[in-house]
Write a protein that binds this DNA or RNA. Structure first.
Lengths: 223, 223
DNA sequence: ACTTATACATAACGATGCTATGCATAACAC
DNA sequence: GTGTTATGCATAGCATCGTTATGTATAAGT
């Protein structure tokens, strides 16, 4: 019953919104800007998404999917602590590559995201579950002594999320400090705090850093 | 040369802005809303502050001052780890009492704040320094083995900042988890990770929690 | 072929930050 | 005491934002 000149207009709106978010930040994702980019009117956002908030939620859902694949990427080896640290570096890599997306996902938008349907929240929680799995492996291997995996996961997530937010706001650059060094510190102290030996933790750390460097090179080469 | 009907109008603007931020959040702090509250025009914000960003910076400066006094409040005892954990609970207490202020201070506004004059940045860093002092005490007492106090401080700050942001966005409430439990976990694992004994850390933790409960009661009684 | 429903454009409302303009007045020079 | 000057403030307007009401053209159903 409608004209529907372009059957995949919703898809194009989503792509444009994601591109504008990545390149120019959240403020560039406006109904009028999208209409200008797409050659349409501002109404298309409301016909297909119901508003700018709902559109942002859809973009966030994509972000969480991409975030999830980034976190699962790392292989499972015989060194679960190194595997865990690899996930930590993957976490940081995603945030640095998509700073605007990460900021929207975990600060401004998270509250709205939570209020939506439970399916949305599960998308966000999926990335957290992959962290829990790595923690569980460390406990199973006898490296860590973890009573409650969820609590441990929340502590780890707090550390890497806080560091990421501080790094994205430019704190480390402003005081001339190295963010990699403190990121190492978080992983190291937590691993020891969970019961691992100091030297084996250091060994796992250097292993994970080598993997992270390889992953960085692989990405920069592919793009 | 000016009429200057009210010599302390800037002060009143600041007070109103701080009140609106605390009670209704950042979106309520607009030039038109301020003009309505104060019975003036929107121009007063520009004559006295140059714009809404500069006004926000001034409000943040106040926030950091209050934040600093909250963090220094705790006494220095013969248990430096307990003193450090007391600072952590004070950190959380401030954020929960002034959620909007904390959010502006450490996410949206921090970047702008950094770009201002160095005096502003020192105000923000002062609260960080009081954290470093507590860490130094733990190392001096032989409880912790810390190579670089700054790096350790950044790791600690990342943990408590990340946890605070997650709690303020409503994450723990959404999944039905206890934020106090994971906040304990952060302090405990980091303290052990820095080299402290597991049992003495637990002892210091319970000591700090008793102090925090007392501080909470003292505040609720005074207000 | 006619009816119906709907995707989209146009236009407008209230809100935002900010700027240009004008005025009334307090502070200065004498 | 008088005149000049500079400035705090109000008014009005600009561009932008999200959203809604309205009209129209067209694809789908009968």
């Amino acid at each position: 019953m409608p004209p529907r000149s372009d059957p995949q207009l919703p898809e194009r709106i989503l792509n444009t919104a994601a591109r504008l978010l990545a390149t120019e930040g959240p403020r560039a994702v406006s109904t009028r800007r999208l209409a200008r980019e797409l050659g349409t009117s501002t109404m298309v956002v409301y016909t297909h998404f119901g508003g700018i908030n709902e559109l942002t939620r859809q973009v966030m859902r994509r972000g969480f999917a991409e975030f999830g694949t980034e976190l699962v990427r790392g292989a499972v080896t015989d060194d679960p602590v190194a595997d865990w640290m690899t996930l930590l570096w993957g976490y940081r890599r995603f945030a640095l590559r998509q700073p605007h997306m990460y900021t929207v996902m975990f600060s401004a938008g998270l509250a709205d995201f939570r209020l939506g349907d439970p399916a949305d929240f599960k998308a966000a929680r999926a990335s957290f579950v992959s962290l829990l799995r790595r923690i569980h492996a460390c406990a199973d291997a006898g490296r860590w002594d973890v009573q409650d995996v969820n609590t441990a996961g929340e502590a780890v997530w707090s550390g890497i999320h806080g560091h990421t937010m501080l790094e994205l706001t430019g704190f480390f650059g402003a005081v001339g400090r190295d963010p990699i060094r403190s990121y190492n510190e978080i992983g190291t102290r937590l691993s020891i705090g969970f019961g691992d030996d100091t030297h084996t933790t250091a060994h796992s750390l250097s292993k994970a850093k080598r993997r992270a460097a390889r992953a960085d090179r692989a990405h920069t080469a592919s793009t």
